[in-house]
């Protein structure tokens, strides 16, 4: 059994079976808690979501677009991104230049080493 499940790194082990068991226990606990819920619930009886008293925006209007996610992360690393993104010029000759540059550096290193 262990042969199938146990993965050893030499300094630690990982057993997916134990993780699965823990996951199943968590699912069972969730199901148990859910069983305390209202028995008279039916589809359609659910109330509209409460958004600070505002009506729910129609047709995906409440959906936060991907570009708005991680705004803070990108803003705080704007110095890093302002240097990194311009390197990705999309220009083929730049791509070739990077390739040849790395090759030149490695040639020097290989000949020294």
């Amino acid at each position: 059994m262990n042969l199938l499940w146990l993965l050893s790194s030499g300094s630690g082990t990982w057993n997916p079976l134990l993780w699965l068991l823990a996951f199943i226990v968590a699912l069972a606990a969730a199901w148990f808690i859910r069983s305390f819920g209202r028995k008279d619930f039916r589809e359609g009886l659910q109330q509209e979501p409460f958004i600070s008293g505002n009506e729910e925006p129609a047709d995906g209007g409440g959906h936060i677009p991907a570009s708005n996610l991680y705004w803070g992360f990108l803003e705080s690393l704007s110095g890093y991104y302002s240097r990194l993104i311009p390197l990705h010029t999309g220009i083929l000759t730049d791509y070739v230049a990077w390739f040849l540059g790395v090759m030149a550096v490695m040639l020097v290193i290989a000949l020294i080493v």
Binding site: W5, P16, L17
Partner: peptide, 8 residues
Amino acid sequence: GLMPRPFI
């Protein structure tokens, strides 16, 4: 993922 050991 579940049975990495035989593959390893």
